[in-house]
């Protein structure tokens, strides 16, 4: 009975708020999806953070630092949103650090040159925007609201990345080569960010039924490709797909086959940087323990005294 009412609310486009009745599975799916999203933001700080100290101008230095800071903020918004579902942030962090929770596999790739920073902003944030714009209409209030806030901030990330790539592509031969090489390495993993085809994706059906996902993975991926092809042409960089071809009848850019073996391999721990990313997060957590304890001890002393 409650389940039927719940589904009617979803169908009517109503927003579900933290104290509303919800099926246990809805709650669990959202916790999984939201915490995975938050973890991705946090881990995402690492490949980009790798270039802050080497950013080549003051403007780029500040831009990149602000971007990585935003990512921390996004992680925070989403963790807080997840907590409204009755789970502690500490528990979620523990799942990330022990490898029990997933995060977007794109962040298991290394940033080898400054151009990688451009490619990430352009492709990875670009893909994220396509995904998050859809999620801004998700049925769960706190998630949708976090997405709206994030979408506002994310636009600057993508523009910054694209501007970096445009500058490199118009620069010295060495810079052009750097840019093209980064495109070659980041393009396919970025397409994989949207996940496998919905028919191969175990969670898609439920999430769609409950208004959390409103568009399929393939639809979103296609949208991203369509947007990006023109952008690449405009700055004279070549997307590494010989099968990329405009389809007159659908109006879409058809693209080549994705190597799903690579995707699954990376998701399951054998990407270039999986271990490093996790060790880095664990180190920060471990080395920060005494700091967190100090804050707690101080607060306890001063509450007692108050």
């Amino acid at each position: 009975m409650q389940e039927t009412e719940f589904e009617a609310r979803i169908a009517a486009g109503e927003t579900i708020e933290p104290k509303d009745w919800m099926p246990e599975r809805y709650r669990k799916q959202l916790i999984r999806m939201m915490s995975q999203h938050a973890h991705s933001e946090i881990v995402g700080m690492l490949p980009e953070g790798n270039w802050i100290t080497r950013a080549p101008t003051l403007r780029r230095k500040m831009g990149l630092l602000a971007k990585v800071q935003d990512e921390a903020g996004h992680g925070l918004y989403i963790y807080c949103g997840t907590e409204t579902l009755g789970v502690d942030r500490a528990e979620l962090i523990d799942q990330l650090l022990t490898g029990k929770a997933k995060y977007s596999s794109i962040f298991n790739y290394p940033t080898l040159t400054w151009a990688d920073i451009g490619a990430i902003g352009w492709f990875v944030d670009g893909a994220a925007i396509v995904n998050q714009t859809m999620l801004a209409k998700a049925s769960y209030g706190p998630y949708a609201r976090a997405m709206i806030r994030i979408c506002k901030e994310e636009n600057f990330h993508k523009r910054q990345g694209y501007e970096i790539m445009a500058t490199l592509a118009a620069g010295t031969p060495g810079q052009r080569q750097m840019a093209q090489d980064a495109v070659n390495r980041w393009w396919w993993p970025s397409l994989m960010m949207f996940g496998p085809s919905d028919k191969d994706s175990p969670n898609s059906a439920e999430l769609t039924k409950w208004g959390v996902k409103r568009k399929g993975n393939d639809d979103l991926r296609q949208r991203f490709v369509n947007l990006t092809v023109a952008q690449a042409k405009a700055i004279d960089l070549v997307l590494p797909d010989p099968d990329l071809k405009y389809n007159e009848s659908t109006g879409n850019w058809d693209f080549g086959p994705i190597d799903w073996d690579e995707f699954h391999r990376v998701v399951h721990g054998d990407g270039p940087c999986n271990r490093e990313r996790l060790e880095s997060r664990n180190a920060a957590h471990r080395e920060g323990e005494w700091v967190r304890q100090a804050a707690e001890a101080y607060a306890a002393k001063h509450v007692a005294a108050a």
Partner: peptide, 17 residues
């Protein structure tokens, strides 16, 4: 800026940045 991504708490990553 060297602390970014390595601070003891997420809130401090943001503050130091």
């Amino acid at each position: 800026s060297e602390w970014c991504g390595h601070a003891p708490i997420l809130e401090e990553d943001i503050a130091l940045a």
